[in-house]
């Protein structure tokens, strides 16, 4: 699998994602700078990392969503290339219009940084095939703007179409219907606030995140 990790000024989880991908896939991802306008030929998986791209100026993810590389990511996603956006990556995906809704300031106004239990809502997506539906996993969160909001019709549609991938089991940030991660209608783009790449090896506290990358590898390689 040829993976690419997009790097914006202010990304700070790009190396975490790169380490996770290399561990699971066995190949280093290509780090792609935000001003590049094309992805490497043959890229079959794209990860958009967490962090504070462009200092969260204007709105979290707003600038990154309009950068040259994001146009290339959009085109690749339209061709069916799987895209994972974690934390700031999720914010970028909503700002780019690749996922519905928006991520607003946490309801409690505090930066939330702790491991949180999540329910895997849908195990049929290409990102969650290695999990059981209804299973509880624990991933760390670290965000200030993780409060997922969309209008009622959009929320109903996401739920009705089985596009909620992960839900918080605790009150974390005020997200509508406790949504922690969603997929697009084609099923190849996942945005999530919790960090699966920070739950990869025993030293992290748990290894629940590992199966996300394993499932992805299996699907992409198939």
């Amino acid at each position: 699998m040829n993976s690419a990790v997009i790097v914006f000024p202010g990304s700070n989880c790009d190396r975490d994602l790169a380490v996770a991908l290399e561990q699971v896939i066995g190949r280093k991802p290509t780090m792609v700078w935000h001003q590049d306008s094309a992805l490497p030929d043959g890229t079959d998986f794209i990860a958009i990392p967490g962090g504070f791209s462009y200092g969260d100026y204007l709105r979290s993810g707003a600038m990154a969503a309009r950068s040259p590389i994001t146009r290339a990511v959009k085109d690749a996603a339209a061709r069916g290339v799987p895209v994972l956006g974690v934390c700031n990556g999720f914010q970028v995906l909503t700002e780019a219009g690749m996922l519905p809704g928006a991520l607003m300031r946490n309801a409690g106004l505090n930066f939330v940084c702790r491991p949180v239990p999540l329910e895997v809502e849908n195990s049929r997506s290409l990102f969650t095939s290695r999990y059981d539906a209804g299973e509880t996993v624990v991933f760390p969160v670290a965000h200030h703007d993780g409060n997922y909001q969309a209008d009622e019709a959009t929320l109903d549609r996401l739920e009705g179409e089985g596009r909620v991938a992960f839900r918080y089991l605790d009150q974390v940030n005020g997200s509508a219907r406790a949504i922690a991660g969603i997929v697009n209608d084609a099923g190849n783009v996942l945005g999530m606030m919790p960090h699966p790449e920070r739950a990869l090896e025993p030293a992290h506290g748990n290894t629940d995140g590992r199966r996300l990358f394993e499932g992805l590898l299996e699907t992409v390689a198939a």
Partner: peptide, 9 residues
């Protein structure tokens, strides 16, 4: 529409 406002919210 393209940048200054996020018309979702």
């Amino acid at each position: 529409r393209k940048l200054l406002a996020n018309t979702v919210i």
